[in-house]
Amino acid sequence: MVQLRINGHIKTVDIDPETPLLWAIREQLGLTGTKFGCGISLCGACTVHVDGQATRSCVTPIGDVDGQDVTTIEGIAGADGTLHAVQAAWIKHQVPQCGYCQSGQIMSAVALLSENPNPSDNEIESFMAGNICRCGMYSRIKAAIKTAAKAA
């Protein structure tokens, strides 16, 4: 039995604590915005926040987040539905193509900006290097992060 706060709601999940957080989020909690890409933390598609830190949920046992705050892509917009500055910048720059990696990209970008509100190009590149975009939208992601940084 694991208890966590997900996107502000306290939930209890009755599951083997070794289960990766990714699958608990998708299958038990029904939040499918977080994606499965590689299963071994090499692609970033499964990125969520645990207590505000960007975390690869595919290799994080749910038992490890007992009692912690988990935020997924579904939880970053305002309560009134206002998009997060990063999401708005993603639309402005028409970032997604297939879109599959974008939940992870956005969660990484939000985490980056919360610890470094004005990142340099190098800082953006090195923070975001863990997130693969197979459609290759890196220039747009970088530009959108800069736009979001200005908006904040």
Partner: peptide, 15 residues
């Protein structure tokens, strides 16, 4: 198709 790809609501086969 972009708005639903920034808020996690886009439905892929996996979903």
């Amino acid at each position: 198709d972009i708005p639903q790809k920034v808020d996690g609501t886009a439905m892929f086969g996996l979903d």
